[in-house]
Design a protein around this nucleic acid. Structure first.
Lengths: 346, 346
DNA sequence: CTTTGGCACTCAATTCTACCGAGTGCTAAC
DNA sequence: GTTAGCACTCGGTAGAATTGAGTGCCAAAG
């Protein structure tokens, strides 16, 4: 069934006219959510042929898997592959001036802890785009301990507070096997600090073997810290504009399923990481690997500081989302957020 | 137009037969989401009269504002007032055995920091009821400082870590006006600790007026802490099962609006607090004071430890939600959560 | 005064039909 | 390869007819 005169269709480029038609179909369908017919393609392109010719091309594009027909007598709708081509051949866009202002304004004013900044950034992103945003902050595997202290809440409950070199702070309740006096706690705190400082959580520490009260407490506290390590390495995630899910899909059931996905922090984080690991910036429909996201697309941009991945920002919308705007927003915010943190650290 | 022989309708009790009818209408409408007619009321009650009589009563109930008619030839639907009566006269239900198990199981296994427990509790609640849950943890206005320390990230960035008597930990970045050496930081940390220990954030502290490097840092750190006080007094909030919003309403627009409300942490917290302050356990429709929640109801149960309010759990659903089950779940969880924390503290 | 059977009436929802029109696929001619 | 022409498909809409659940009212009975 392969055409004769065509070069073998292994390269990902279509011949120019087909490409134009495909892009027109995708663009219009993103705009109108309706199937696109041959004549409206002509109105929105500069190609000068008859509708019949366009139809022939569309049949061909359908055979190649870029387009689909909801029913016989309707126009064409892009498939995931069609969107993929569209996205891959998108000339990079730039944020509108008003939005650019908003981003700059935001980052010039925002202050405070990393966690708060990330959360607010996620709000910003969703406001910019009217899509649901995901901001992922990476784990601090390499961070060393700057300070560790044990605080006595009461004789049976101690609080282990650890400060890391990346500015994160963790707290854990320690329930000692025997009640601990205030003085013992203070001394244990001192020893813990000495023991842990400048180590990472990966490094084993020399716990004292002695059996006195202080050493016991120290042992127990270190045990708690290491037991919680897996949890602490988990990335943090912030979601903004979840309500936009409701206007991205017209079937309530889809809305439910997408919201349900968003509730699973681990899943979303790994989804975003996967895309970045593959070196992509957009995952379309089935590419997400989640059935409920079959009609969704996820646009991501990594956040790197000094060449190291420290997180990512993402936007979740329907497959017919405005990719250009979304990409521009994600990239712009990712750029500014990098600048923000690099600025803070210097 | 008032009936003659009726006692003045100022008491909130209806005559028994009307009450039965009203309750039947509400119960069935909650079940079916459909308007309820006179004949189906008869099927679900033990009252033995003709449909005509029921109709007469329903006209009366409509005049009094308990019921409404979507259109002339349809059955009745409860108004907010109708639901209110229904809820006020609900005999308190009890959780199903399977759910009771689930709650006990959960609280017997759950461990860790307060924040984590609250977050997981909110998941539990939404699983139990298939409604969206809200868990609010109160602010720690009365908590005293157990420990305050300054940690040097680098000469230009210090981290102020404060531990409070209620087990919460706060961190704030301090950007000193001049670079601070490691030694200065250590000394400042010692002074801060001495200065703040056993105070609450409400109490003013005697900041040193001296102009040496250490005193300056201490002053700046204390300033940061007090500047952030309003933020820290804000309650923490956890939302679970947001996806259930999507199956609680059939209009997508309503879903959007409700989700949008849930994104506003402050609003939701004050909503929940208001209800509790009024001594209620349910707020129905307009009672919420938020237009988008006109068709929603919020069931709450306070969490008190030693008679002091420390938080609340809530469930958000449509006005036609299953109040009995929701109330039972909220109260059961609130009871268990109290027991859990009291158990931990003793 | 309350209850009830009877009855006309209302109105959303459903079904059916006809029809329109956007859009297609095919083919024969250019 | 392109195009004009044409038959065809099929979802969407509009109108008419029908259905039926449920009402309001009234006059008679308890």
């Amino acid at each position: 069934m392969a055409r004769k005169t065509m070069p073998p269709n292994q390269g990902k480029d279509l011949d120019p006219r087909k490409a134009t038609i495909l892009e027109a179909v995708v663009a219009e369908h993103i705009d109108t959510a309706q199937p696109v017919g041959s004549s409206s393609v002509l109105q929105n392109t500069d190609i000068d042929v008859s509708p019949a010719t366009v139809r022939t091309e569309m049949v061909s594009l359908e055979r190649e898997g870029y387009l689909a027909q909801p029913h016989t007598s309707a126009g064409r709708i892009p498939t995931d592959k069609g969107y993929r081509y569209f996205v891959d051949h998108l000339e990079t866009g730039v944020l509108g001036p008003a939005q650019q202002m908003q981003v700059r304004e935001f980052f010039s004013k925002v202050r405070g802890e990393v966690e708060d900044v990330l959360e607010q950034t996620s709000s910003l992103l969703s406001q910019l785009t009217a899509y649901t945003s995901v901001v992922v902050g990476s784990a601090h595997t390499q961070a060393t301990v700057l300070s560790a202290q044990l605080v006595s809440l009461d004789p049976r409950h101690l609080l282990l507070v650890t400060v890391f070199s990346d500015g994160t702070v963790s707290k854990h309740t320690v329930v000692p096997s025997v009640p601990v006096s205030f003085e013992t706690c203070t001394e244990a705190s001192r020893q813990m600090h000495a023991l842990l400082i400048d180590t990472t959580l990966q490094q084993p520490v020399q716990v004292p073997v002695s059996n006195n009260a202080v050493a016991t407490v120290v042992r127990e506290a270190v045990a708690v810290l290491h037991a919680k390590r897996p949890t602490m390495e988990g990335e943090s995630m912030y979601i903004g504009g979840a309500s936009h899910v409701a206007d991205s899909y017209d079937q309530v059931e889809t809305v439910r399923q997408v919201l349900s996905i968003l509730e699973q922090e681990l899943l979303v984080v790994s989804l975003v990481q996967d895309i970045i690991d593959k070196g992509l910036s957009v995952a379309i429909g089935a590419e997400n690997g989640q059935v409920p996201l079959a009609t969704s697309a996820l646009v991501v941009a990594p956040v790197t500081i000094d060449g190291e991945k420290v997180g990512a920002v993402g936007l979740l919308g329907p497959t017919r989302m405005k990719y250009k705007e979304a990409l521009a927003a994600a990239e712009s915010v990712s750029r500014e957020i990098t600048r923000h943190f690099e600025g803070t650290n210097t």
